[in-house]
Write a protein that binds this DNA or RNA. Structure first.
Lengths: 122, 122
DNA sequence: CGGCATCCCTGTGGATACTG
DNA sequence: CAGTATCCACAGGGATGCCG
């Protein structure tokens, strides 16, 4: 058994980072960028349902944490490409594996829910 | 490359489950229960900083999804033990691996942040 | 096009009190 | 002890409008 990370503290720094990569949009950004680099509005269309504000905010957070690179080309009209860093790639693979695993368990989860809800009605 | 789970839809069911296991307290509950089963208030003390309401809510959600078992013993005073199901154990290991990886990357993240913040000041 | 600022609303989640 | 119920504060996050 490896030594326990102390994520038990609400203020623990790794907790914050963990929330960045598993957050609603953070996860989707990382997942999308696994395939290739994206422009801002490409990313927005690819993910779907994300507001400009949240996408910008998410991208900034992940860039600041060192998970992705922002390449702003000084042209008119502006063109900004986002891609994963090496660390970002690892993070993306991790959360992707988790997402994938969850999706595989979905039938079991649905069944568990029906069982749970059924028991409460009877 | 395995086929992509479609987590891109905000309404996607697996998104919901993913949020349950990676949520603030969900993660900590799963992490704690990897070691052994816990009673309600044991868990509350172990995790630290979690309100009764949120712990109860988190436990219910994870139980309903089939990640953990609730064993309520009909005694006075009440005694309720929580433990992982087989699926819960797998989920816990996954999120734990992720948390652990994040913690290892923490120095790199801090460095990236300093670099990012420094560039904005200069 | 790719943001940033502002406004505003909803829902998460904490504190407290009560019950079986 | 192990919850439920209620209230409420605050922040996450959406919509809109403006700027480089």
């Amino acid at each position: 058994m490896t030594e326990a990370p102390n994520v038990n503290r609400a203020t623990c720094p790794s907790r914050i980072v963990l929330e960045h990569v598993t957050s609603r949009w953070g996860l989707l950004v990382l997942a999308a960028l696994r395939e290739r680099s994206f422009r801002f509005s490409e990313l927005r269309r690819e993910i779907g349902g994300v507001s400009e504000k949240m996408l910008a905010q998410t991208l900034q957070t992940l860039e600041r944490d060192g998970f992705l690179l922002r390449d702003a080309k000084p042209v008119i009209p502006p063109r900004v490409d986002y891609s994963l860093t090496v660390m970002g790639r690892e993070a993306a693979d991790q959360v992707w594996a988790l997402a994938h695993w969850v999706e595989r368990q979905l039938p079991a989860v649905v069944e568990a829910r029906e069982s749970y809800d059924g028991a409460r009605v009877s």
